[in-house]
């Protein structure tokens, strides 16, 4: 039996890699993909818990997370398209209109 904290460590690692990608990459689409990565890490963690605690509620939550992630991806990408149309670039450094 694989100890549970191996899975949780894996989940943490993927989450941190996703966060690293979000904080460092300059391309907006890749930033978005990093967010998906983070969500997946959370999914792994939830399924793990559900398995080890013999409870299906983790799976239910994962189901909903995947649903919402899909919706979010759709809308986010639509926004990126609209943004690209205005700014002709997907480089995040250019998008500082809210600079104070």
């Amino acid at each position: 039996m694989v100890p549970i904290h191996w899975y949780l460590t894996l989940s943490a690692a993927v989450f941190m890699i996703g966060m690293f990608g979000f904080l460092t990459r300059r391309n907006i689409i890749i930033m978005f993909m990093s967010v998906e990565l983070m969500l997946n890490a959370v999914n792994i963690s939830l399924v793990t818990f559900s398995h080890y605690l013999q409870d299906l509620r983790g799976h239910i939550l994962v189901f909903f997370i995947i649903t919402v992630a899909a919706a979010e991806a759709a809308i986010g990408l639509a926004i990126i398209i609209a943004l690209f149309r205005n700014k002709q670039t997907a480089h995040v450094d250019e998008m500082n209109e809210m600079k104070g």
Binding site: F22, L23, M31, V92, N96, E97, M98, K99, G100
Partner: peptide
Amino acid sequence: LRKIQTGLMQHYATIMA
């Protein structure tokens, strides 16, 4: 103090992290 508002989302995210 205004200079904190760089307008770059990743700076904000870094600070949140």
